[in-house]
Amino acid sequence: MNSNAPADDYMIPLRLTWDESLLKVQEVSYPKPESRKYSFSEKPILVYTGDFEIQTRFQAPAGAPIGMSVVTGKLRYQACNDSMCLPPKVVEVRLPVEIRAR
């Protein structure tokens, strides 16, 4: 599927966004993409294949509720191969987190 920066203006990038009402997002880190040449593109496209990880660093603001919670987010992605493309999709992501007093 397309990476977060597929190197083509018309390609739809992978994007993970979080609802920040509980925790603040400090950083979303996408893995290093593969550079692949496809028959439809003059230059290589930056893509993800197989399994990969996206990391997010959260910060708990003062007054955040102590205990277990769930952070929700949305992942937008779009995939192609050499002969066809699937339409862009958005899937909901639910992440259980535990907020502890320090």
Partner: peptide
């Protein structure tokens, strides 16, 4: 407050 597992990996 701190977030347990502040850094998590979302495996796709």
């Amino acid at each position: 407050p701190i977030v347990r597992n502040v850094l998590f990996a979302l495996a796709l």
